[in-house]
Amino acid sequence: MRMREKIILRVVSKAFIPFIFLFALYIQFHGDFGPGGGFQAGVVFAAGIILYGVIFGLDTMRLAVPERLMEYGIVLGLILYGGVGIVSLISGANFLDYDVLNAHDPTHGQHLGILLVELGVGITVTCAMTTIFYALAGRGEK
């Protein structure tokens, strides 16, 4: 990657990447109230990470976002989603029925359940996209 000389690209993307991440987190956690949700947040977050990788090179990217961590993340997100289902199952309700997650108010239970489930989707999508990028770009390294 002959990106070292592209000073404008480097400076501009460096300024933008934090805001991309911030926007992704907003989409993730504001999904209950506005448009967005786990999948959208995941792809926006991944787009930020991949932009970083494209501009600063794969080796720098590996330091910031370890490949192994991303691979664990794909599984972690799915387990988080399924785990919420198992918890509601143990609490005596149907699989993925969030009403029982809060003992007092089913609506709060729904909020909590949806928040966790969307977080699981977000983690899986981010890590999946990044891993695919590593797989593709890693082949071109040698």
């Binding site: 209950d32 949700g37 993925l96 609506t107 729904q110 949806i114 899986t124 999508v125």
Partner: peptide
């Protein structure tokens, strides 16, 4: 009712929670 302001999220994550789990 799920009771979220954003009905899309309600349907996606709660009413259709199984589907979204499958998609993930």
């Amino acid at each position: 009712a799920v009771g979220l302001p954003n009905i899309v999220t309600s349907i996606l994550a709660s009413y259709r929670g199984y589907d979204t789990f499958g998609e993930t």
